[in-house]
């Protein structure tokens, strides 16, 4: 793929994103718009998982840890400060630092993929237990009670920076959320097109070779993990804003599994896949929530197992390959052995 076609697809995606940003409030009524807003928040979370897993090759089972941490940080700071601007910044900064610390522990310890999965899972479960047990007056930060299992209700919404008296309307929250999604997408595309991004993909393809070429793979993985943590934190901040509420369920195993399902269904090694996966799965969950017959966990579990068995590369890569097959082939496609697309096809794809 030449760079120009990569740029073209990027610009096309950006245009679609901006069109949706402006167009959605004109098409949807307020209820639908609110629902799409939370889909978008989850799509940002899916991007963080898609980036570190699909491009960085880091098997994190605990993206919901940073998601929840971002949400709680926003809630605590916004309740104390009044103005939400600092809260947003901290909700991104704190998960980034936490991810960096955890990443230092894991990547400088040179532990294997499976252990990374188990440790991230363990950290999520620790956070769940801790936040679950924060009921009572002893656990109040400033004037923000953490509330234990019941969570924190009445979190103040985002406001115009510097103007705490001007909170965002639901429609403006949509602009903020969708704007955040477009921004994160653009940022990640930029990172992947840069030298740094190429090294990250090279490490995913063959860590030993990257090391032998002189790259400190530990540092690169650490940075990828920290960026992913920050993005997940931003998603948590949006999520908290959407409901004005956060509870320890954000740290639950079900949330962690959902994020993996978004990425797996949408497609590993793409950025568009996780976004579409998040929206599709969230839509499905909202449909399932509206009826009482089939349990949502049952459906999600079947989807996860079925995709691992039958479509391990996800929907977007499958469609992309199908499209590519319609065109006359210029070179035989290498079949990826590990479920990840080959390096040559990565950087130019949405």
């Amino acid at each position: 793929m030449s760079l120009s076609s990569g740029t073209a697809s990027f610009l096309a995606m950006l245009a679609i994103g901006l069109a949706l940003l402006v167009g959605a409030p004109m098409v949807f009524d307020l209820f639908a718009l609110l629902q799409v807003t939370v889909f978008v928040a989850m799509a940002v979370l899916a991007l963080s998982q898609g980036f570190i897993w699909g491009y960085g090759g880091i098997m994190s089972f605990g993206q919901s840890a940073f998601f929840g941490l971002g949400g709680y940080t926003y809630a605590v700071v916004a309740m104390n400060a009044g103005d939400s601007t600092g809260a947003v910044l901290l909700a991104i900064l704190l998960p980034t630092l936490f991810a960096a610390l955890l990443g230092y522990f894991m990547f400088y310890g040179r532990i294997s993929d499976a252990y990374v999965g188990v440790i991230t899972l363990t950290v999520t479960i620790i956070l769940f237990s801790v936040f679950n047990s924060t009921a009572g007056d002893a656990y109040t930060i400033g004037n923000a009670p953490l509330g234990g299992f019941n969570g924190m209700p009445a979190v103040p919404p985002l406001n115009i920076p510097g103007r705490p008296d001007l909170p965002l309307e639901p429609e403006q929250l949509w602009y903020a959320s969708m704007g955040c999604l477009v921004l994160v997408y653009g940022l990640l595309r930029g990172i992947l097109a840069s030298r740094f991004g190429r090294v990250v993909v090279a490490i995913r393809e063959n860590e030993t070779r990257a090391q032998l070429l002189g790259y400190d793979t530990r540092l690169y993985k650490l940075l990828v993990f920290a960026i992913g943590g920050g993005i997940a934190g931003a998603a948590g901040c949006l999520f908290t804003n959407w409901g004005g509420f956060i509870s320890p369920t954000v740290f639950s195993l079900a949330t962690s599994a959902q994020v993996l399902i978004y990425v797996l269904v949408g497609g590993l090694g793409t950025l568009l896949g996780p976004i579409l996966g998040a929206i599709a799965i969230q839509y499905l969950i909202s449909l399932l929530g509206a009826q009482q017959v089939i349990n949502a966990n049952l459906v999600l579990g079947v989807i996860l197992a079925a995709f691992v068995l039958l479509v391990p590369q996800g929907v977007v890569p499958v469609l992309r390959d199908a499209l590519a097959r319609l065109r006359p082939p210029s070179h035989p496609r290498a079949k990826p052995g590990n479920g990840l697309p080959d390096a040559a096809g990565v950087e130019a794809k949405p």
């Binding site: 098997m59 499976a114 999965g117 999600l300 996860l304 079925a306 479920g339």
Partner: peptide, 18 residues
């Protein structure tokens, strides 16, 4: 290894749901 973890996680959710 990773795929078995994911598939068995799916199984876990499915069993909880069932």
């Amino acid at each position: 290894m990773i795929d078995t973890m994911l598939a068995s996680w799916g199984l876990s959710l499915g069993l909880i749901g069932l």
